[in-house]
Design a protein around this nucleic acid. Structure first.
Lengths: 155, 155
DNA sequence: CCCTTCTTTAACCATCGCGTAAAGCTCTAA
DNA sequence: TTAGAGCTTTACGCGATGGTTAAAGAAGGG
């Protein structure tokens, strides 16, 4: 039984996201998204079927099994969490955050994921909008030292 | 010229960190740290020499070139930054944070790295010790909703 | 100077991840 | 209804990666 490599995860993620658009997921769609040739996809699909991650019969559309669906959703969410944290909170430029998330998403444990997600929610549900401490962080990063406001923070 | 794969990075990181203990870095040290056999190291070293990342002559000790030193330091720091953020700030358990950092360190751009580092410094240099908003985050993560104190935060 | 320990060489192996060429389906449009 | 375009699969091959074992060859301490 083949192992779930990062490449496999990328394929499953791709298939999952193509599926979100509605409509069948065809070999050509996957090939286009991943930037490889049709035969490569055929080969990978064999492996994915063997691993019980996708359903696929000759010349048919590709669908994720329950297991594949779970994995696809999982990776997609890890990606989104990392991206959101880096881009929306750390304010890392969008394309950089995307690239980094693509690599990092494969190594994120469920525990870390939960911690990041809570953090994002914590920031985004702040009743006052962008939290003051976050503004202080941007200031700190920009100027190399703390703003005055930060020192008045309540305990 | 071989590419700098994540594996190569792991070897360089390993060599760099062994070197920090002082004393020569020998093939056996690297083998023990990376959990592979001596001949594997000999093989890899050929590649690392070719890539101008290490100096090494037959039966001699291994030293990093300027380029290798830079890379080793770089990766080690990315690892540390990720680990510190996840463990010390997000409070992800140490061993989990270590494992995640090992994978994620390879995909961290300089920009993201700077942002994380600033964040850690921002938290750790808080004049009042652990910032109140961070306590609020732990509370939020634990209880699924914000503590009262958080709503009183100053702008 | 010998013996242990370290290191290297040589040969080999299993995947992996992709490609090309060519053949085989499918489905549509005339 | 059939021809052809487009999609998919098969067969084959390739180069890189990342290791292994077996055995030979240095180094160095007693």
């Amino acid at each position: 039984m083949p192992k779930v490599t990062t490449n496999i995860e990328d394929y499953i993620e791709g298939i999952y996201e193509i599926g979100l658009n509605g409509g069948d997921v065809r070999v050509k769609d996957i090939a286009r998204r991943l930037g490889v040739t049709y035969p490569s996809i055929s080969g990978i699909l064999k492996k994915l079927v063997e691993m019980d991650l996708v359903h696929h019969e000759r010349y048919g559309a590709v669908t994720l099994t329950r297991k594949g669906e779970k994995l696809g959703k999982d990776i997609t969410e890890r990606h989104k969490i990392l991206f959101d944290f880096m881009h929306r909170i750390l304010k890392v430029p969008s394309n950089t955050a995307q690239r980094d998330a693509c690599g990092m998403e494969h190594s994120m444990s469920p525990e870390t994921r939960k911690a990041f997600l809570s953090f994002i929610r914590f920031v985004q549900t702040c009743p006052k909008g962008e939290p003051s401490w976050l503004k202080s962080y941007y200031y700190f990063r920009e100027h190399g030292q703390r703003a005055e406001a930060c020192r008045e923070e309540k305990s």
